[in-house]
Design a protein around this nucleic acid. Structure first.
Ligand SMILES: [Mn+2]
Ligand SMILES: [Mn+2]
Ligand SMILES: [Zn+2]
Ligand SMILES: [Zn+2]
Lengths: 138, 138
DNA sequence: GTTCAAATGCAACAATGTTGCAAAATAATA
DNA sequence: TATTATTTTGCAACATTGTTGCATTTGAAC
């Protein structure tokens, strides 16, 4: 088991349960983004679908993972940087979805560019999702 | 009925049907983005849910409307500019979702900034979705 | 180990999306 | 305009996705 798992859960005042350990491990291992369906498949019959929904919800609230918007009705989730916390996400990086293999990447080193909006719009968040072909699918 | 409706359908080689006219009219009137659920509500029992799905799909393919990604599993649709066509969308503008009223705006005059990705990523599209408070909800 | 609080599994349900096919509407043709 | 051919629609049936309440189980604290 990945050493960071218990740490992360404790730091966020979450009780250490099997499902939380397992789901968090999936994120730590794969590094890429995961959809709810991915987790459901990988975990087999190990725990209930509802538990996955609730665990993802909890992790997002605590700043352990963040959501990645998409245009195909299938939100994906990825690990946050360590400085995210409850109510304070700092995941202002660009995301990339490969049209070919479906993999979603967090491009941690590509910062979201500033966008200037018309007067009257108060911006609190900017999501940038690029798509195309990833390096593995060239 | 909006004069552009029949034109638009003919130009895209689509037969003129009640549902297509009505749904296209909704987009022309409201100017803002619409979700499937919005259309279903507004149209009452007028036509089947399946017809709405198929009409939206057809409109997207023909370049009449475009999808707007979101982080809440509810894709929205908005009218394209006239120079979009089958297989060739040119809607490279920024979108804004108001956290308060839920309205989604196409900011036609705010161009998507160029993003430089690491070597190996071949980008074909960049979506920028800002969120916060719109001018009406200040 | 006991107690208390939190998380889980289950069931039931709601919402969303897909597919096949007969009936209806539209377009093309005569 | 009437007939024919093509496309679209509505319906049914189903699959997937997401939500809620509640009893049971698990984990944390003592
Ligand atoms: Mn990310
Ligand atoms: Mn738009
Ligand atoms: Zn790929
Ligand atoms: Zn608003």
């Amino acid at each position: 088991m990945h050493p960071r798992i218990v740490d992360t859960l404790k730091r966020n005042q979450l009780s250490i349960t099997d499902s939380r350990k397992k789901i968090l491990e999936m994120f730590l291992q794969r590094k890429g983004a995961l959809a709810h369906a991915d987790i459901e498949q990988q975990s087999g019959e190990e725990f209930d679908r509802v538990t996955i929904y609730r665990t993802l919800q909890t992790f997002v609230e605590k700043g352990i993972i963040h959501t990645i918007p998409s245009a195909d009705n299938s939100v994906r989730y990825a690990l946050c940087k360590d400085d995210c916390s409850e109510g304070h996400h700092h995941d202002n990086h660009v995301h990339f979805m490969c049209d070919h293999c479906g993999t979603t990447y967090c491009l941690d080193h590509v910062t979201v560019p500033a966008v200037v909006l018309p007067t009257g719009f108060k911006v609190t968040q900017v999501d940038v999702v690029a798509s195309g072909t990833c390096m593995k699918c060239q």
